[in-house]
Simulated scan of single mutants.
Amino acid sequence: MRTYWDLCVGFARTGVTGYGGGPSTIPLIEYEAVKKYKWMTEEEFGESLALANTLPGPIATKMAAYVGYKIKGPLGAFVAIMAHIVPSLIGMLGLLGVLYTFKSSAVVKGMINGVAPVVGVMLAVMAYQFFQKGRQGLGSKWMIGMSLFSLCVIEFLNLHPGFVIILFLTSAFVWSTYKESGKTLFTRKQVMRSREEEL
């Protein structure tokens, strides 16, 4: 029961404080899952986030489902999703009228402008962390090249990020398959040579 309670509290916090949409919530989910409760490592979180980005739907709810399922199976996924969504839903229903009434207020606009830099910093920190992970796995040249390519096709060619993700996933799959087939072929040749030498 303690774990279910932790899932409720952790994802309720991410739902309530996740100002600015799904991407801005990811650093909050990472804090709860990796640093506070230690449900997974940073590497596991990065891999699950990359996988979640390839699937349709809001990224925050996908991550909540993944973390909950990893900890407590299907029921854990359900608890994490509900804990993430319900507080925001209640707050939205309760404050919608008030926010709509005062949407042109200078105070409300100031609050929004004041929060925006914090969200930007959180996203920048997460981007730096993922860049470092990618650099360790791919090397600096490949990481910089792929980052610049992604920036160009998304910002200047207005290509949907989903297509870029699919392109990289397909390329990685083809490259990995090619490398594995090459290793298998090399191993077979070594085995054949060993047998010939034995004969």
Rank of each mutant, 00 (worst) to 15 (best):
141 K>P: 01
55 L>D: 08
17 T>I: 13
98 V>H: 11
57 G>A: 15
197 E>S: 08
42 E>G: 07
168 F>R: 05
28 L>N: 02
185 L>A: 13
62 K>N: 12
62 K>G: 10
64 A>R: 00
193 R>D: 10
53 N>M: 15
180 E>P: 00
57 G>Q: 14
97 G>N: 13
161 P>M: 11
184 T>K: 15
116 A>S: 12
8 C>M: 14
182 G>R: 15
58 P>T: 08
162 G>F: 14
16 V>D: 02
7 L>Q: 02
75 L>V: 14
186 F>H: 12
60 A>L: 08
105 S>Q: 09
92 M>W: 04
112 I>Q: 08
68 G>D: 03
45 F>Q: 01
111 M>K: 02
74 P>Y: 11
63 M>A: 06
105 S>E: 06
167 L>G: 07
89 L>M: 15
10 G>P: 02
165 I>H: 02
101 T>K: 15
117 P>G: 11
180 E>Q: 15
70 K>D: 01
100 Y>E: 11
65 A>P: 00
118 V>R: 03
174 V>E: 03
144 I>K: 02
69 Y>G: 10
23 P>T: 07
71 I>H: 00
175 W>A: 10
130 F>A: 04
154 I>E: 01
169 L>Y: 13
27 P>I: 10
78 F>K: 04
145 G>M: 05
1 M>W: 09
14 T>N: 04
63 M>H: 03
82 M>S: 09
88 S>L: 05
25 T>S: 13
169 L>V: 15
174 V>T: 12
162 G>R: 13
85 I>P: 00
113 N>A: 14
147 S>W: 03
90 I>D: 03
152 C>E: 06
178 Y>P: 00
90 I>P: 00
26 I>Y: 01
194 S>C: 12
91 G>D: 05
156 F>T: 05
110 G>C: 04
131 F>I: 08
188 R>F: 08
104 S>D: 15
47 E>G: 08
126 M>Y: 09
52 A>E: 05
199 L>G: 05
114 G>I: 07
89 L>I: 14
135 R>E: 11
57 G>D: 13
62 K>E: 05
192 M>E: 15
183 K>E: 09
15 G>D: 03
177 T>D: 04
84 H>I: 09
142 W>V: 15
